[in-house]
Simulated scan of single mutants.
Amino acid sequence: MGSVFSKPSRRAFIAGTGAATLMTTGVFGAATRKQSSGKLIDEQSFARLEEIGDGVWAVLSTPVNANGGFETTTLSNAGLIMGDDKVVVYDAFFRPEGAAWLSEHAKKLTGRYPTHVIVSHLHADHCGGLAGFQRGSEGPEIIMTEVTRDLIFETYGKGEPRENEIFGRPPIRLLGPTQILHDESKPVSLDLGGRSISIDPLAGHTPSDLAVHISDADIIFASDLVWEGYFPNYVNAVPSKLVPSVKHLFKNGDNLMVSGHGGIAKAKDLDIYLELLEAIDKGAKEAHALGLTAEEGGAIFISPEATKNWIRFNPQYPTIAYQAWYRELGNNQ
Rank of each mutant, 00 (worst) to 15 (best):
A47E: 12
L151G: 09
R11D: 09
L130G: 08
Q179H: 04
Y317Q: 12
S3D: 14
R33T: 13
S3P: 12
N164K: 13
S208C: 05
G38A: 09
K241M: 11
P201T: 00
R149N: 14
A12D: 08
L292W: 09
S103L: 13
Y234A: 14
L329C: 07
T155E: 11
G204S: 04
R169H: 03
V117S: 02
T319W: 12
D216G: 03
V243S: 04
R312S: 15
A131I: 02
G38T: 04
Y317F: 15
S196D: 11
L80W: 02
G229W: 04
M82V: 02
T155I: 01
D254Q: 08
G229N: 04
A124K: 13
N309C: 06
L151T: 05
R135S: 00
V119Y: 04
I197C: 01
D254E: 12
V235R: 15
E295P: 02
L22G: 06
Y113S: 13
Y326H: 11
A211F: 08
L174C: 12
V59R: 08
P318I: 04
L249K: 08
I311Y: 01
V246Q: 00
V88D: 10
N255I: 08
Y317W: 09
A12I: 03
T145N: 01
G98D: 01
V89M: 12
K108V: 06
I311C: 07
Q179Y: 03
K285M: 09
L277H: 00
K241G: 05
L130Y: 05
E184S: 10
G2D: 06
G128M: 03
P244D: 00
S9D: 12
A30F: 10
G298Y: 01
F231M: 11
S45Y: 09
R48M: 13
A324Q: 07
L290N: 14
E305Q: 14
S189N: 15
L122A: 14
S245E: 06
G111N: 09
Q134A: 15
H248F: 01
I14T: 04
R48E: 12
Y322A: 10
I220D: 04
